[in-house]
């Protein structure tokens, strides 16, 4: 009787193990680094570039004024016409531009990077994967 009960228990545990393994594998895959989209760069790579990087903050003026990456220039689409002239004045053509926004689902960095490439004809532009949240280590 006990042996039978143990067999049944073992059977249920084996059955429970299958979805647990699937779920575990899923979680591990989810935690793996997302692949880079075209034009994106990881924070570690941008850090390796050191002084050659010019950070570009594509967030709102309020967020930029609260805090931003060291030496970052503000350029967003809300105030593009106003900000583009000082941005061009400050921009060093020998540096690589890396644009960031909040991170997560924000799309402002991609939009600003695209306009820099298209409207300003500056080709050396990347988007920071993970955005400001990545910098903050969130």
């Amino acid at each position: 009787m006990i042996a039978r009960l143990l067999r049944q228990l073992a059977f249920v545990l084996v059955l429970a193990l299958a979805p647990a393994l699937v779920s575990g594998a899923w979680q591990l895959a989810w935690k793996k680094e997302e692949p880079l989209a075209p034009g994106e760069v990881r924070l570690a790579t941008a850090r390796e570039w050191g002084d050659k990087v010019q950070w570009v903050d594509a967030r709102s003026r309020a967020k930029y004024e609260r805090t931003h990456l060291p030496g970052a220039l503000l350029l967003n689409e809300d105030e593009w016409d106003t900000l583009v002239k000082p941005f061009i004045d400050e921009w060093d053509s020998d540096k690589t531009l890396v644009v960031y926004c909040d991170g997560g689902t924000c799309d402002a960095s991609h939009a600003v990077a695209a306009r820099i490439r298209k409207e300003l004809s500056i080709p050396d532009v990347y988007v920071l994967k993970g955005g400001f949240a990545e910098w903050e280590g969130k």
Binding site: V84, I88, S93, K118, E119, L120, S121, I122
Partner: peptide, 10 residues
């Protein structure tokens, strides 16, 4: 539409 809106030389 204007492209580009910046021309520059080093």
């Amino acid at each position: 539409s204007i492209e580009p809106t910046l021309v520059y030389w080093k």
